[in-house]
């Protein structure tokens, strides 16, 4: 279980101070937890703090009872951590099996027989058993990601942190990856950070939206979807006409009778032919982000 209270992180850039995280309070239980947010929202900083790589400026983080703000607590947490960073750097001259084996050693698995067995197990789990003796430099992006998840799993972590894991993967790889994460979440905390709404909808029962360093929403995908109820519309327009700026275009489709827009906004009364639509998860996300941006503009 992860307990976070008043977590802040500030960076100094020149004379400016940037608040990457601004008073985060969260409690995360076992299972899959999604962290959603636009680029630059502070997701990676948040993930790196939980991985013990970045020190918080203030606040309190406890993972399975260990305090992340102390050196000994951090050491304990890293021993039970599996981490897949957004920008995955690897020793590409090593084979997949060597790389995962090395990471297992760094994580403290000293018994070579047990380690060897576990390395084979995780490579099998990610579908790389047959390719395990090939050098990583010859792997595709998806295969490298799979090696990344194998190294994250090799110490059988209690906490698995994956930051934008599906970026750059083809649809088949993404589905495979999502399913793998869901399977892993049965007996541990899996923290999935992404800006791809669909990935969260397909995998998480619990999620948070992070925007401008603050938690904007905390709840289930169903609750997020509900947030956009009565704020989603479809509208068909002809010629060069476009919806006004109060409405956010979620998607558009060119049809014979004109362009069909899917819109999110407080109302579309100005348009007689606007039809209310059933919201989806993405609509809920767009609606909340829209609300948040309007609040910032008002301030």
């Amino acid at each position: 279980m992860i307990e976070i209270k008043g977590l802040t992180k500030t960076y100094g850039v020149g004379n400016k101070t940037i608040n990457a995280l601004n008073g985060i309070d969260l409690r995360i239980n076992s299972g899959m937890f999604g962290l959603l947010g636009p680029n630059g929202a502070g997701k990676t900083t948040f993930m790196r703090i939980l991985a013990g790589i970045v020190n918080p400026s203030s606040g309190f983080v406890k993972i399975n009872g260990f305090d992340l703000t102390t050196e000994s607590g951090k050491h304990q947490i890293k021993s039970m951590l599996g981490y897949l960073p957004q920008e995955l750097g690897m020793y590409t001259e090593l084979t997949a099996i060597q790389f995962v084996d090395y990471m297992a050693i760094l994580k403290g698995i000293d018994d070579s027989r047990k380690r060897n067995q576990r390395v084979h197990e995780v490579l099998e789990m990610v579908g790389l058993a047959k390719e395990s003796n090939r050098k990583i430099k010859g792997f595709s992006g998806g295969m490298k990601r799979r090696v990344g998840i194998a190294q994250a799993l090799v110490n059988n972590p209690k906490l698995l942190i994956v930051d934008e894991p599906t970026a750059g993967l083809d649809p088949e790889e993404r589905i495979r990856f999502r399913n793998l994460l869901v399977n892993l979440a049965t007996d541990r905390v899996v923290l999935l950070s992404t800006h791809i709404v669909e990935d969260i909808g397909q995998t998480c029962r619990d999620l948070a939206i992070l925007a401008k360093g603050q938690i904007l929403f905390r709840g289930s995908p169903t609750e997020l979807t509900k947030a956009a109820e009565n704020h989603v519309w479809t509208l068909t327009m002809q010629g060069m006409e476009k919806p006004n700026h109060d409405l956010t275009v979620v998607s558009m489709l060119h049809l014979a009778e004109g362009t069909q827009y899917r819109l999110v906004g407080s109302n579309a009364k100005d348009y007689a032919n606007a039809q209310p639509a059933q919201p989806g998860l993405e609509d809920g996300y767009v609606w909340l982000m829209k609300q948040s941006n309007q609040m910032v503009e008002m301030i």
Binding site: K78, P85, Y91, Q151
Partner: peptide, 14 residues
């Protein structure tokens, strides 16, 4: 100058 520096930092090595 280590390509896997972030991964290394996430392990319990001192």
């Amino acid at each position: 100058d280590d390509p896997a520096l972030e991964l290394r930092f996430a392990t319990p090595i001192r």
